[in-house]
């Protein structure tokens, strides 16, 4: 059984979104996603300063066997990228909710309303 944290928001594409302060969120992939992928060997991320667009691809997670596109759960400007994942992609397998990918300044905070609650996400990740 994979873990779902109560205080996060989720996308259909198995990403989590965590509100940190007004209009700023952290984005990562869920425990369910990492368990489906298996050993993650590489995380291909954009750079700080780039914009991401909700529902558009912004990077990829590569496991030994497969590449999986990352789909933006929200729109905004990337403030920071988690550089730790470049050298230690296995951090995502170890704790998917600690291993954030991007810190994003939201361009439209109402997009958060479209995301799933923990209960709703549990239903689709079984």
């Amino acid at each position: 059984m994979s873990k779902v944290l109560k205080d996060l928001l989720y996308s259909d594409d198995h990403e989590w979104v965590k509100k940190t302060k007004d209009n700023v969120v952290l984005v990562g992939i869920t425990d369910f996603a990492q368990s489906q992928l298996g050993s993650i060997v590489f995380v291909d991320l954009p750079e700080a300063g780039d914009d991401i667009e909700k529902d558009e691809e912004f990077g990829a997670v590569e496991s030994v066997k497969a590449a999986s596109d990352l789909i933006a759960p929200v729109s905004g400007e990337i403030m920071e990228v988690n550089d730790d994942l470049v050298g230690e992609p296995e951090l995502v397998n170890e704790n998917a909710y600690e291993a954030w990918f991007l810190k994003v300044k939201l361009s439209d905070s109402s997009e958060l309303d479209d995301l799933l609650s923990a209960e709703e996400y549990e239903d689709i990740s079984e």
Binding site: G38, S39, V64, K65
Partner: peptide, 20 residues
């Protein structure tokens, strides 16, 4: 094991992790 179809068979792809 994570099982997947391979040829006509359903086979184990990994038990723990491929790397291990």
């Amino acid at each position: 094991a994570t099982m997947e179809p391979f040829a006509d068979f359903i086979m184990p792809i990994r038990y723990t992790s491929i790397k291990e």
